[in-house]
Design a protein around this nucleic acid. Structure first.
Lengths: 238, 238
DNA sequence: GTATCCACTATTGTATACACGAATTACCTC
DNA sequence: GAGGTAATTCGTGTATACAATAGTGGATAC
């Protein structure tokens, strides 16, 4: 009983998505159903279903008679995403600080803090980035708001593929670690206003830094194409 | 050239979604591919594709060999959604107030204000609700953040079907209209802090009212659990 | 009367076949 | 050689055919 075989579309969806996120499939690349079908050794049907989902996520564009094209990410889009994440994480940290956290959670957070300091000292910037994501996820995950968790994790994915590559992180890492500490302290003290404010500042800072690296890497400010089906029912599209 | 025939899946998706949002298809109802296929006079293929998208939106649950089941909405979920909308609209109004708005936009907003006052006077509560949505959408749509627009419109859809039905709106409508006025004024004066604060208060207020009506209408807080509002779980009990 | 097992049915998952339109190529005209 | 037009190819959109499995109901044993 229980978990019998999952449909192919799910594993295929995940595989293609990770390939996009990890840069194994590049922006602008064309994905053909038949090609993928032979590659995954299935028929076109589950491939189509996976591609349809990827389009809804906003990663590819389905063009009739042409193929599925992996969308480019513009700096503008990155900016939009980071701003929203900033709002939602600030909200999450406020929620958590208001409610207060357990002793275990406190040690968990402080432990993270130590690890990130270690990463900084040993110049393990990849390690830092990974721990950083987990640190930030902590508050969202503790927000007791599943909708929030889903939205933020979706948004994180959108910038994930861009985060690690050659950046000026080393120049900022010490400041970030300090801010993290202030956030943790504020949460421990139930000082939700301060916690929120620190997080807002922290993420505004990160946005500036991140956009900067993006532009230095030559990414265009405007480029990405529209094409979300979501807005179909919104009465106010102009 | 340009827009040739759109794929069936799109129109089918929109139609089924509208039917769910407008309550023509009820929660818990089972949707069968073959049934829908004959109903729409197409094959199962475009139906499946539409259902897949609806599942990704979170409206239905696809169960193998069983069918697609329309999901129930719990009060908890509504609470989550409204809280997030609250954060994002507050952000949007801040952005707009910082940037400032044109003369045309000002008259547009004031015009809305008048119309809603008219709705209140003539007890046209449906009219009020519709104008209210447009009023709130204004700021998001002017935020110059497409990602934000899409997220909020998706979230609005999730509570859309629940908004209009039998409520205690009349008891609160005058207060709401006053708050709207304060928001507009703050935006005109570029007072972004005040604009944001007013919007936050406004939506917190709305959340309380809305959850209240939901629970009075017998909706469960957690699907399957007793129907009381667990204030302890509300992150914003002051 | 009740429990167990088995065959049947309903419904989705997957593969294949067909339809259609866009892009490309080949060909013809001058 | 240039320009335009018909034929071909390529790839998705849609329909249909086949496979697999969860749920159902009925027959059988006791």
């Amino acid at each position: 009983m229980g978990s019998t075989k999952r449909p192919y579309r799910e594993t295929i969806y995940k595989e293609i998505l990770t390939d996009i996120l990890e840069g194994k499939i590049n922006e602008g690349e064309k994905l053909l159903e038949l090609e993928l079908a032979t590659q995954f050794n299935v028929s076109r049907t589950p491939i189509r279903e996976a591609l349809l989902q990827l389009e809804k996520d906003g990663y590819i564009l389905l063009k009739k008679n042409i193929g599925a094209i992996v969308k480019k990410t513009s700096a503008k889009q990155i900016q939009e995403v980071i701003e929203i994440i900033g709002q939602l994480e600030s909200f999450a940290v406020e929620v958590v600080a208001r409610r207060g956290i357990s002793k275990e959670d406190i040690t968990y957070l402080l432990d993270f803090q130590l690890r990130m300091e270690g990463n900084a000292k040993s110049k393990d910037y990849n390690g830092y980035v990974n721990n950083n994501i987990l640190f930030h996820s902590f508050f969202v995950n503790k927000s007791d708001n599943k909708t929030l968790i889903d939205i933020v994790s979706g948004l994180r994915n959108k910038i994930y593929r861009l985060i690690s590559e050659g950046s000026t992180l080393p120049l900022h890492i010490d400041k970030y670690i300090e801010t993290h500490k202030r956030i943790i302290d504020a949460v421990i003290e139930n000082n939700y206003k301060s916690a929120r404010m620190e997080m807002e500042i922290h993420l505004k800072d990160f946005k500036t830094f991140f956009l900067d690296t993006m532009l230095k890497r030559g990414i265009k400010y405007l480029d990405g194409e529209p094409a979300y089906l979501n807005r179909a029912l919104d009465p106010f599209v102009d």
